[in-house]
């Protein structure tokens, strides 16, 4: 963990409620995809935990949904502004378990950390397949960015306005392989039930500190209570007790 002052390079809407913020600053504390940042917003007491969607030499991309006043104010920040961000938080995905044909399953704002994962896996020459689930056509984002990486992309929408109609679990391949999933809890639980093989889930929880001090985001796991922020946010399938 490292506190870094970042400068906003751009901050643009991807859909009605989802924004992409690009920042420049020291990202040396990030070890890989699945880790997150805690963003301090002027006028708000707690920081906002947001996963890294992309990392460059000296740049960070955050994709966030405007769910409340804090993220609403974040969407109005303009290029040039400085933000204090805690970097390199949490444990990311384990790329060593990917196999040759990893499957990435993302829903809504669970899609962003999978973009950085897809990028890293493609760099390793893996045949990445991605299922990206959204409610409706107007909420789709980053489909082209995933394709540009050379990933095989399947989009699902609940209302059928684009791609396969239904949920991400309606578009699962016959041989899923090792999977990485990130999205809303009901989607993750559905994936947990639908995919028989091994994989990893990235969880979301309301956090206090984001670095393991307050015990605000603890869940029960197969190996006892774990803090989503410090021990996660990525957990292996066998760690989660959703089948119990």
């Amino acid at each position: 963990m490292k506190e870094v002052s970042f400068r906003i390079l751009s901050n643009r809407p991807l859909t009605g409620e989802v924004f992409e913020m690009k920042l420049s600053g020291d990202v040396s504390d990030f070890r890989g995809p699945g880790q997150f940042a805690e963003v301090a917003l002027p006028g708000f007491f707690l920081r906002r935990p947001i996963s890294a969607a992309d990392l460059g030499e000296n740049s960070l991309t955050l994709i966030y949904k405007t769910v409340g006043k804090g993220t609403g104010s974040m969407s109005r920040l303009t290029p040039g502004a400085e933000l204090s961000i805690l970097t390199g938080l949490g444990n990311g995905y384990d790329l060593s378990r990917a196999g040759e044909t990893p499957l990435l399953i993302g829903g809504g704002v669970g899609v962003p950390p999978l973009y950085l994962l897809a990028k890293r896996l493609r760099e390793e020459g893996k045949a990445v397949r991605a299922i990206l689930g959204f409610n409706t056509k107007s909420e789709i984002f980053y489909e082209e960015e995933f394709r540009a990486l050379g990933a095989g992309v399947t989009v699902t929408t609940v209302d059928g306005s684009a791609g396969t109609k239904g949920f991400v679990t309606d578009a699962l391949p016959e041989k899923p392989g090792y999977f990485y999933a990130c999205g809303p809890l009901p989607m993750l639980r559905a994936v947990y039930r639908a995919v028989p093989g091994a994989g990893e889930f990235s969880l979301e929880e309301r956090m206090g500190c984001g670095f393991g001090a307050c015990m605000g985001c603890t869940i029960e796991t197969a190996s006892g209570p774990k803090r989503v922020c410090r021990d996660g946010p990525v957990f292996r399938k066998e760690e989660l007790l959703w089948g119990k």
């Binding site: 708000f44 007491f45 707690l46 804090g70 929880e205 309301r206 956090m207 206090g208 307050c214 015990m215 605000g216 985001c217 603890t218 869940i219 209570p225």
Partner: peptide, 18 residues
């Protein structure tokens, strides 16, 4: 401890129910 959510933001502060 308690079920999550255990944290909520407030004006100039926070609630915890760890």
């Amino acid at each position: 401890g308690n079920p999550t959510p255990r944290i909520a933001e407030t004006p100039a502060g926070m609630l915890n129910a760890v």
